[in-house]
Design a protein around this nucleic acid. Structure first.
Length: 918
RNA sequence: GCCUGGAUGGCGGAAUUGGUAGACGCGCCGGACUCAAAAUCCGGUUCCUUCGGGAGUGAGGGUUCGACCCCCUCUCCAGGUACCA
């Protein structure tokens, strides 16, 4: 099995063992194995045309080490791989080149798979999935139907981000500062028919579920903030001269006495009614202006508050005071009730607005901290405190007052406690071709009711309690689910993937697919271009033209790996019982508020539907840090060619940048300066790898020059997996040298095994001790994912082995087992040459022998007043008195204490003796 | 603004419970081998020093016999988020 070579010929060795693993299915996960299961998952890649990135390599190497280690520990490990293959870049490439996206996708996957195999991952390739595969898509659509049936999917004509350049609508998350996340094109508001998923219905569950998750605290906090639960009250304000009342949401009912005006969002339904004749022109103009304003302008730094008076007044329910009602765009329609009570004394935004509009400001909360210092409460004071100027509630503390006011309002039916979330429902449709079609047919009300009335029809399974409808040109359309027997609903082949410009997807132009005759008995369909078949079971229908966003497929892919070929069910319940959900999930922290939240939502629905037996999809989550490009040094020049120090730049300065070589700069204090002119500071930092910056490191190139093992080792040696760390190509020499040294230590010039390796047990005690220390440390470090120190320890061990006269083959084999998770190819090869049968990947992880770790002597560090003053080797049995006596005789200790009196001595057995003297 | 992380030699990083700061590696310096170079091997490498020592983990203070580690204040960097009432 081994390669016939006297040198460390990593190219042949790696190809040989990769083939071996493939052919022997070494890393196949076994369904229903007796062994305990361990399911390791990494976020699957989007197979872009650019191929594998060094970030992918590091992302997949860490879990691969864990997978190989767990396998050696006796687990039935599952490490799968798949493709998140729907998506915009592929579609855009198709538009540009006229190639079918399916073809582009296949090609890209081919490349990615080859590249991943060349890194040598212990993946069970038999379970590979592809979100664009109809056999996969079927179940994505099936899950959508579950959401549909449960009333969690609805259609809404709503303003969405429309990107003219991309010809599509984007989700809030895909718009950053008014520009598209992909491509940085400007976006604008446009109203379009959209599918929306009611993720807000699961907000509470999503928060509750957090308590059982082993996630980084910061990620939990991020999701918590994103969901943004707040508690307060909804309060009714009656309106002067109107029957209706105005409902507002506040988190601070304790400030009700401080209300001096009210604000409606410009889109508020009562805005028109409340506008008096005299104010009509002003309010109308303001509303038009606000509607035109993009969110880009709303989020612009200059947050000057604007607004206009409606001419109407509201009555404060707690004190019957009359307050003016305004319209202002600092109040959002999409949060709370779209209207607020303004308390300028205790809210910064209201304060700012009140100042500008010269509205009254009242203090109703006393800042106790200021008070205790004898100072006045500074307004606006948004904190809690003692209520003042609040009638019968005065002198109560904020929290107590809050509770009491809510109670009183509730008893008078003027308000009630209320919980609000920042989280919005999930805009779930895209106007694209390359995505999952919605399994929905639009039919007339009459036809819909007929289907509903037919208890035997295959449509029944997914009919919602309340019909999903939308109105267009005065006609109401009803959403009929595509029955399970008709899934998957596949994409039609089209000539052009170009957006048709109306905002609708290219599918809207494919009439043979779009307009159908639908059989209400069987669910079958025919294009309307064909004559209508006989019988009144055939009704006309129109398919949904939106497609699902890329998130859809990734919301549940981890379940499919457990049963990737099942055509009858998403997952066999028995396999769900066996594999459950991943025991370990790793991926970028940037997915916390999107993919990870969406997937949790879907999973909870699938749990409710009985598809999964686990309440949460990802019980343990780890993020890997980004790899930055190599350190770059930048020099700045002004327009006249004068050098400018990096720290003295102003924002508005127009400066030319020039890249410098490392040899042109040096460090001075904490700054980097120009060698030729040390008064000029240069900018020194690592940047995110990007094509445009030209600092992308290609893993193929590294593997070609150094081998997959060196590459893997180096990626891990770079630093802790969760940290962001800069790349440094030179550094790979170190680990490469280490593997070459290892090779030469075991294989001699004539291809035989180095004669210094002996048969039988290890007879060198020092070697044995270090070996067992290494087993212990490496085992613990892998468990803690500290792979960088695993590499260090292996280096320390090898350095020692190289130095000693001889050691046993047994020791060498254990070394290879410890190395195997990180550098599996060379480990397999040398294992084999040392006479190992089969594959090292099938061997059991070595255990350390604690008895080998104890030494006869220990080193005691001597300190005087906490300062290092030498060290002492003493027997482990030495008692305190002996150590103290010997220590005091030491010359360096004597020198430091001779003119002082010893006050006390602190002794930590086996570690330290600190003599306190003055 | 708010919420998270983080800051240790020229560089990446180590120090697991408060106990020798700088493991391991890169780079650099010196040496061996070589006609020479590469590769390899050996030694050195935080700073200052009168060679006794002294200083030192972003800055300043505190707790402690003893602090990279705990507490307070501040600076800078990175990420997230932002009129959410």
């Amino acid at each position: 099995m081994s390669v016939d070579s006297k040198d460390y010929n990593f190219g042949d060795i790696e190809a040989n063992w990769q083939k071996f693993w493939d052919e022997n299915k070494t890393f196949q996960a076994e369904d229903y194995s007796e062994k305990p299961k361990y399911y390791i998952l990494s976020m699957y890649p989007y197979p872009s045309g650019e191929g594998l990135h060094i970030g992918h390599a590091i992302n997949y190497t860490a879990p691969d080490i864990l997978a190989r280690y767990k396998k050696a520990q006796g687990f039935n490990t599952l490490q799968p791989m798949g493709w998140d293959a729907f998506g915009l870049p592929t579609e855009q490439y198709a538009i540009k080149t006229g190639t079918h996206p399916r073809l582009v996708t296949e090609r890209n996957i081919e490349t990615f798979r080859d590249q991943l195999k060349k890194v040598g991952f212990a993946i069970d390739w038999d379970r590979e999935i592809n979100t664009t595969d109809p056999g996969y898509m079927k179940w994505t659509q099936w899950i959508f139907l579950h959401l549909f049936k449960r009333g969690l999917a609805y259609v809404s004509d709503q303003p969405v981000w429309w990107c003219p350049e991309l010809g599509t609508v984007l989700a809030n998350e895909e718009v950053i500062d008014g520009l598209s996340e992909r491509g940085n094109h400007p976006v604008e508001r446009r109203k379009l028919r959209q599918w929306v998923l009611k993720i807000t219905g699961y907000a509470e569950r999503l928060l509750e579920g957090h308590k059982d998750l082993q996630w980084p605290d910061s990620s939990i906090r991020l999701q918590k903030n994103w969901i943004g639960r707040s508690t307060g009250a909804e309060v009714e304000f009656s309106l002067e001269g109107h029957k209706e009342s105005l409902r507002i949401y506040t988190t601070r009912p304790d400030t009700l006495f401080g209300v001096t005006y009210m604000v409606l969002s410009p889109e508020h339904p009562l805005a028109d009614q409340l506008t008096t004749e005299e104010q009509k022109v002003v309010v109308e103009a303001y509303k038009v202006e606000a509607a035109k304003k993009s969110d880009l302008e709303r989020t612009e730094l200059a947050k000057e508050k604007t607004g206009v008076f409606t001419g109407s007044f509201a009555i404060n329910p707690v004190n019957n005071e009359k307050v003016s009602i305004w319209v202002a765009d600092y109040v959002l329609m999409s949060y709370g009730t779209g209207a607020i009570m303004a308390v300028p004394g205790h809210d910064e935004r209201d304060y700012e607005f009140a100042k500008d509009m010269k509205l009254p400001i009242v203090k109703v909360i006393e800042d106790k901290v200021a008070q205790s210092k004898g100072e006045e409460t500074q307004l606006p004071y948004p904190g809690k405190g003692t209520m003042v100027n609040s009638g019968e509630y005065s002198d109560l503390e904020s929290d107590a007052g809050k509770t009491k006011i809510i109670e009183d309002l509730e008893s008078k039916q003027l308000g009630e406690a209320s919980v609000q979330y920042k989280l919005r429902d999930w805009l779930f449709s895209r106007q694209r071709y390359w995505g999952e079609p919605f399994p929905v047919t639009w039919v007339s009300q009459e036809d819909y009711e007929r289907v509903v009335g037919n208890a035997d029809s295959p449509f029944q399974e997914f009919l919602p309690e309340e019909a999903v409808t939308f109105e267009a040109e005065g006609k109401l359309h009803f959403a009929l689910p595509v029955p399970k027997n008709q899934l998957p609903l596949e994409l039609p082949d089209v000539e052009s993937y170009q957006p048709i410009g109306t905002g609708e997807s290219p599918l809207a132009g494919v009439s043979d697919w779009l307009e159908i005759w639908l059989n209400t008995e069987t669910g079958d369909s025919l294009p309307q271009s064909a004559p209508k078949p006989d019988g009144d079971n055939w009704i006309p229908g129109t398919r949904e033209t939106n497609t699902m966003p890329q998130w859809a497929g990734s919301c549940w892919y981890y379940l499919r790996y457990c049963d990737s070929d099942n055509t009858e069910a998403l997952i066999d319940p028995k396999l769900d019982q066996y594999w459950g959900v991943p025991d370990f999930y790793i991926g970028g922290a940037e997915h916390v508020n999107l993919h990870l939240l969406y997937a949790r939502f879907w999973h909870q629905v699938l749990f409710d539907a009985g598809v999964s037996s686990c309440p949460e999809p990802f019980p343990k989550l780890v993020h890997q840090g980004m790899i930055l490009g190599e350190m770059e040094y930048t020099l700045f020049e002004d327009a006249d060619g004068n050098l400018v120090s990096a720290n003295s730049m102003e924002d508005g300065d127009e400066l030319n940048k020039r890249s410098l070589e490392e040899s042109e700069v040096e460090k001075s204090g904490s700054d980097w300066v120009l060698k030729s002119n040390p008064s000029i500071k240069v900018d020194a930092r690592s940047h995110k790898m990007s094509k445009s910056r030209g600092n992308v490191v290609n893993p193929d190139q590294l593997i070609k020059s150094y081998g997959a093992d060196s590459t893997r080792l180096f990626l891990m040696f770079l630093g802790p997996i969760e940290d962001m760390k800069p790349w440094n190509t030179q550094g790979i020499e170190g680990v490469s040298r280490f593997l070459r040294r290892l090779w030469k230590e075991i294989v001699t010039e004539d291809r035989s095994i180095n004669p210094k390796l002996t048969d039988g047990e290890e007879s060198n005690q020092e070697v044995d001790k270090l070996l067992h220390e290494s087993i212990k440390k490496i085992t613990e470090d892998i468990e803690r994912l500290n792979f960088n120190t695993v590499v260090s320890q292996l280096m320390i061990l090898l350095n020692h082995l190289v130095k000693v006269e001889s050691y046993s083959k047994k020791t060498a084999r254990i070394f290879l087992q410890l190395l195997n998770p990180l550098a599996p190819h060379i480990a397999e090869e040398l294992w084999n040459r040392l006479g190992g049968k089969d594959s090292i990947s099938k061997t059991t992880w070595p255990e350390f022998d604690a008895s080998k770790l104890v030494a006869d002597e220990v080193k005691i560090v001597l300190q005087v007043n906490g300062k290092h003053r030498g060290e002492l080797m003493v027997s482990v049995k030495a008692n305190r008195e002996e150590v103290e006596k010997t220590a005091l005789k030491q010359e360096r200790v004597q020198n430091s204490i001779h003119d002082k009196t010893i006050r006390k001595m602190i002794y930590v057995p086996g570690k330290i003796l600190n003599i306190v003297a003055n």
